[in-house]
């Protein structure tokens, strides 16, 4: 596995400024144009333009056969995506948010993830499922989940979390080209972020070093990348050089890039919006402990969400989620 090209350090890849939302839309547009087997379906993806306006305008451009509004029936339309993939199409299913994906969990786990293996390799499910994830908008417990780690637990799935505009633009094409089911987690807090869209497809597998550093590795993904970068900036002001690793792919994990970073910095802080117990952060920390134990100069730290259902009130929600100060404090403990 190789680290992905980072447009921030590769000017050749930086071609256009856009928002994360526009980059996702452009990727969808390109996919629908490039392959007539591709279609998009989900709740309110058509006339409404997508709950987060990602698919705005695509119905007008591609018509109702290829931009399909579905009834509120997550199990049916996610499963229909699986069936359509088995039938030779390349569906992109949008689940409005990860919270509603629980209504389709049987289809994702018992069908999408198992059919290839359970059929002895006869079947493949080339399906892309996009969903919004994360907290931070005072939407309370049922609309604020970060369950990427749950899905990354499941063999048979590929799970990616584009954290930059370039990844939002470039991950869809390789996801569609994959013969396996790919889950794409789009953090709600990222839709309005701006950056260089690049335009080229990026790999699905590799992690990326978003900021080079020498004293501590901040390993993160998705919606926590801006938090980790802000913490690194703050730490730089204190004379601590933090490296920021964006996992990008949560299954498979690019262990090599993480381990290489820790071997440079000798300290690890994992920043994960999921709950700590049984988290993706736990997996990263365990792998570092297994494979780079003697490279560590301090115990690994984890900065995760408080183990409570995410509350509504702004001060409580802020207290529940990993903040820049929490990451800075954890990094300080490791360099202590």
């Amino acid at each position: 596995m190789s680290a992905a090209t980072d447009p921030a350090v590769d000017p050749a890849a930086a071609t256009a400024r856009s928002t994360y939302r526009e980059a996702l839309r452009e990727a969808l547009r390109e996919a629908l144009r490039a392959d007539e087997r591709v279609f998009l379906m989900g709740e309110d993806v058509g006339r409404y333009g997508g709950c987060f306006a990602v698919s705005l305008g695509l119905l007008e451009e591609f018509g109702p056969e290829r931009v399909r509004d579905t009834p509120l029936s997550e199990s049916a339309f996610v499963g229909a995506g699986i069936g359509a993939a088995l039938g030779g199409l390349r569906p992109i299913v949008e689940i409005m948010t990860v919270n509603f994906s629980l209504l389709a969990l049987d289809q994702i786990l018992n069908n999408a993830a198992t059919l290839s293996h359970m059929s002895g390799g006869q079947l493949a499910v080339p399906l892309v499922i996009r969903m919004t994830t994360g907290a931070g908008r005072q939407l309370a417990a049922q609309h604020s989940h970060s369950l990427e780690g749950w899905y990354a637990h499941i063999p048979g799935l590929r799970v990616v979390a584009p954290a930059t505009v370039a990844d939002a633009r470039g991950m869809l094409a390789p996801a569609l080209a994959s013969p396996d089911p790919v889950l794409v987690f789009e953090h709600a807090g990222l839709y309005a972020t701006e950056g260089d869209a690049g335009g080229a497809a990026v790999g699905l597998d590799g992690a990326a070093v978003r900021r080079a550093g020498t004293d501590v590795s901040l390993v993160t993904y998705g919606g926590m990348l801006p938090t980790a970068l802000a913490a690194a900036e703050h730490l730089a002001g204190e004379g601590t050089s933090a490296e920021v690793v964006d996992l990008r792919s949560l299954r498979p994990l690019d262990e090599d890039t993480v381990l290489a970073s820790v071997r440079r910095t000798h300290r690890l802080v994992v920043v994960d919006e999921g709950w700590r117990s049984g988290s993706l952060a736990a997996e990263v920390a365990a792998r570092v402990a297994e494979h780079a134990f003697y490279d560590l100069d301090a115990p690994p730290e984890r900065v995760c969400s408080a183990e409570v259902p995410v509350p509504y009130a702004v001060h409580l929600e802020r207290a529940a989620l990993p903040a820049v100060d929490d990451v800075v404090a954890a990094a300080r403990r490791t360099v202590g």
Binding site: A76, G79, A80, I82, G83, G87, Q107, N110, N111
Partner: peptide, 24 residues
């Protein structure tokens, strides 16, 4: 397309197979 051991779990897949045939 199998034996599905989750009661009701095959119906969405069948619906999607039919969608693929119809769209194609």
């Amino acid at each position: 397309y199998g034996g599905n051991a989750i009661v009701g779990g095959g119906l969405p897949v069948a619906t999607g197979l039919a969608l693929a045939d119809a769209l194609a």
